[in-house]
């Protein structure tokens, strides 16, 4: 029987992978994938806590919210990516530095 720590380890690995993916990928889609990893890392933690602690169904409901939110976020982000491509003929996020102060 897997322990809570095992689940948390998987969540942490997923999270770190996601963050590294976000920080290193210059491709916008790659960054998006990193974001998904980070979110799912957190989801694993919620589900694990709901199973092993008194959190109960709340943790699972919360993870469902996150999945829905991730889907919505992906839709918006892909639309941004398309527009970004239309304007820059690339989706290299480093090219989009208009927010430079």
């Amino acid at each position: 029987m897997a322990t809570l720590n095992a689940y948390l380890l998987v969540g942490a690995v997923l999270f770190v992978c996601g963050v590294i993916c976000m920080a290193t990928k210059r491709n916008g889609i790659g960054v998006l994938m990193g974001v998904e990893l980070v979110l799912n890392g957190a989801n694993v933690n919620f589900v694990a806590f709901s199973k092993f602690t008194s959190l109960g169904l709340d943790g699972q409901v919360f993870s469902l919210f996150i999945i829905v939110l991730a889907a919505a976020e992906a839709a918006v982000a892909l639309a941004i990516a398309l527009n970004f491509y239309n304007n820059h003929l690339t989706i290299d996020v480093d090219r989009g530095n208009k927010l430079k102060g």
């Binding site: 976000m22 210059r26 960054v31 996020v93 480093d94 989009g96 530095n97 208009k98 927010l99 430079k100």
Partner: peptide
Amino acid sequence: LRVFQTGRVRQYV
């Protein structure tokens, strides 16, 4: 503070 406002997403991450 301007220095930190690079406009690069990856840097922000």
